[in-house]
Design a binder for these strands. Structure first.
Lengths: 137, 137
DNA sequence: TATACTGGTGTTATAAAGTAACGATTGTGG
DNA sequence: CCACAATCGTTACTTTATAACACCAGTATA
């Protein structure tokens, strides 16, 4: 009965999610594939299919400007489908944050334009605090 | 002397820009290539190299979530490097707009985080006004 | 003139990212 | 048992992007 709605991951989905959570930064689908060869992964589709599900339930985000994927950084991530990312082009570090005012502004634009958004992508490319001080050194 | 800093496009750059401006919506690099075969284009690099320059001077934008390119919709486009796009997933139409409050919010986040952004990507995927009324019909 | 430097070009080959199509397997509900 | 849906494994393929190499035109400098 009581089917655990969006919780149970299949073996492949669990492996992919594990690879992403234990990674320092974002991973491409092919990087994930390489990491999971020992677990029986052979073809990109195995990764893409797992990712598709993980994206759907919100456990994973796709970084469009990188063609890569990261695990959602929210603890009990259950509803966050609108987030933003700051991607350091020097060290590769990615920060996830919720830009509420920005989202509100975009919503208000959308309302005026009668545009119904289904997905919002916000990505900042640049240099993180750490790398900035390094180079200012 | 007085070299026209960012104005003169080479033949290839002009052809690519022309293809994009006369297109209804965004084009992929390979779609551009196909359109320009009659003009002597043979290889993707010819397109990508032109695009690289056009992106650099701001005449063209890249839609990350589409892996495609659009001509900038500003008239005298000389300084606009931060814009947003609303992409209709039904008809493919793309609206470019300047979400100033959103950008301000993102800037303020960046300042707090000491993140120095070099490029900002904001893309809304969804359904445009036109397509919404069609389906509501 | 010669030399060198810069930026654009043309071409071949290759890498990286993503999908189509087929069939086998597993679990759930009638 | 059967039907259905979701997942899985595999092969082959498409789409997107880049590396490497050579050539040419313009321009500056000696």
């Amino acid at each position: 009965m009581n089917k655990a709605a969006h919780k149970e991951l299949t073996k492949n989905q669990g492996l992919v999610f594990g690879a992403l959570t234990s990674a320092e930064g974002p991973l491409t689908a092919y990087a994930i594939l390489d990491q999971l060869r020992d677990d029986g992964f052979r073809a990109p589709l195995q990764v893409y299919r797992a990712l598709e599900k993980l994206l759907e339930v919100g456990l994973v985000h796709r970084l469009e400007s990188l063609n890569a994927f990261v695990a959602c950084s929210h603890p009990g991530c259950s509803s966050h489908h609108a987030v933003a990312f700051a991607i350091c082009e020097t060290c590769g570090h990615v920060s996830e944050f919720a830009p509420n005012a920005a989202l509100a502004d975009l919503s208000s634009w959308a309302e005026k334009a009668k545009f119904r958004p289904s997905k919002t992508t916000i990505e900042l490319r640049g240099t993180c605090a750490n790398c900035s001080t390094q180079s200012a050194n």
